[in-house]
């Protein structure tokens, strides 16, 4: 039935995880995008897709035809798509900002917060917040 769908989702999950584990920051974000698409499809699969008929009540009828697709998962997926998209946009900007600030796109090099070496090497500058004395 949805074997195709399930297989595709699994492939997307594998691909997404692999991208997410990448050290290139853009790839990482794209990994999240792929995983997001996969997650949406998972929700969609919950509705047992198979019907071709949209969940729209035909003129003259009061209720949906029984062979129509299940509407609730669609509504959920729609919400999830938009949320995921908004977060993805934010993530893209965030990643670009970090890559710009740190002058590098290698995720492993982002050590401003947690520098390598022991605790003694930590340099926390409290100057981030400005205070008028």
């Amino acid at each position: 039935m949805s074997l195709i769908l399930i297989t595709v989702i699994s492939i997307c999950v594998s691909s997404g995880i692999l991208l997410l584990l990448s050290r290139e920051v853009f790839k990482m974000i794209m990994g999240l995008a792929v995983l997001g698409t996969a997650a949406n499809l998972v929700v969609f699969t919950g509705g047992r897709p198979g019907s071709l008929v949209p969940a729209v009540i035909e003129q003259g009828s009061q209720t949906l035809m029984t062979n129509a697709a299940s509407p609730l998962p669609q509504a959920l997926v729609l919400t999830a798509i938009v949320i995921g998209f908004a977060l993805l946009c934010f993530a893209l900007i965030l990643a670009a900002a970090v890559a710009n600030q740190q002058d590098n796109s290698d995720v492993a090099s982002y050590r401003e917060n947690e520098p390598s070496g022991n605790a003694k090497a930590q340099s926390d500058k409290p100057s981030v917040m400005e205070i008028e004395s």
């Binding site: 594998s14 290139e24 853009f26 996969a38 796109s105």
Partner: peptide, 28 residues
């Protein structure tokens, strides 16, 4: 993103590959 992408070959990293495959299998 001004810098050239960090180059790596994920398929040569068996641990990452294994994790990805396991995640896919789990989803399946």
């Amino acid at each position: 993103f001004k810098h050239a992408p960090y180059r790596e070959t994920p398929w040569k990293q068996p641990l990452k590959l294994l994790l990805a495959l396991l995640a896919g299998a789990g989803t399946f």
